[in-house]
């Protein structure tokens, strides 16, 4: 291929940029994670794996990682279930309605996560809209604790990541010819069977991409668990922030960040590989 080097040269500026703004800080952060922490000197140069060992052996951080995993897993699953029908509808939509609907799907992304969480706080608080409405029905005298619960966190995260899932799925479903579905229906398959045997298998690449994207976003969620989960509910990203900011323990914070990165990467790759195998089968 004579154009090979020239084509590769086109990727050079972007590659250099990624190396400078992403890889270099990551390397620096990794170096920090091998340092030692002292409450008075803050960071003491060292080459030790003690921070990693402390993080993986401490039951507290294991439980923080576990809650991060189940929140991310559940949120990804719910997002997939809630996102597939609108994604299908969007993909099959024609004309100007399609662009308006796409805009509506993207619309929540124009509002910051913190602002959206503030909206949920107004709805879910003990004196919030939901509790006030329940009290007005006369069914409940007191208030139901909705804020500062894992339920609020999952709800908040799902609404943040849903547009990503819908758009990813819709772009893949659009590529599935309508006449394939019609042929299946013509041969007597029920709509449910058409979905199960035709649409879903063909949309699996979109499911893989959507789930991977959403899972990564959920694993790294910061503002939603802080604002809706309250002080008692901890996920990894807020735990990393606490180490950097509240105790200025950069080495331990960096180690936690790399553990989060590694777990997210391994699970995303493993999940994607598993689904890809399904596709090939």
């Amino acid at each position: 291929m004579r154009g090979g080097p020239r084509v590769a040269a086109l990727a050079l500026p972007a590659t250099v940029l990624v190396c400078v703004v992403m890889v270099a800080p990551l390397l620096l952060l990794f170096r920090y994670s091998l340092n030692r922490y002292s409450p008075t000197e803050l960071m003491v140069a060292a080459f030790t794996g003690a921070n990693y060992l402390a993080a993986v052996t401490d039951p507290y951080y294991r439980s923080v990682l576990a809650s991060t995993l189940w929140v991310a897993g559940l949120s990804t699953l719910l997002t997939l279930l809630l996102g597939f029908p609108p994604a299908y509808a969007l993909a099959r939509m024609q004309g100007r309605w399609k662009s308006w609907t796409t805009l509506l799907v993207v619309f929540p992304l124009m509002v910051g996560n913190v602002v959206r969480a503030a909206g949920w706080m107004m709805l879910l608080g003990n004196s919030g809209v939901v509790n006030t409405a329940l009290q007005a029905t006369g069914l409940f005298a007191g208030s139901i604790q909705l804020m500062y619960t894992p339920f609020a966190v999952v709800l908040g995260i799902v609404t943040v990541v849903l547009p990503y899932m819908i758009l990813t799925l819709a772009s893949v479903i659009e590529g599935i010819p309508r006449n394939v579905e019609e042929a299946a229906a013509n041969l007597g398959a029920s709509p449910a069977r058409v979905f199960r045997r035709v649409v879903l298998p063909l949309a699996l690449p979109g499911v893989v991409a959507g789930c991977a994207l959403v899972f990564i976003l959920c694993m790294n969620a910061y503002s939603t668990p802080v604002l809706l989960g309250g002080p008692r509910f901890k996920m990894m990203a807020p735990a990393v922030y606490d180490q950097f900011v509240r105790t200025t323990n950069w080495p331990f914070g960096a180690a936690l960040a790399f553990i989060l990165l590694a777990v997210t990467l391994i699970l995303t790759l493993a999940g994607s590989a598993l689904l890809q195998r399904r596709i090939r089968a």
Binding site: Y37, P39, T40, Y60, R232, K234, D242, R246, T247, N249
Partner: peptide
Amino acid sequence: QAAQLPAILDFWNKDFKG
């Protein structure tokens, strides 16, 4: 305080809030 803060935050997060 400077020497104790990291340990007390640990206690606060793990034991008091946990």
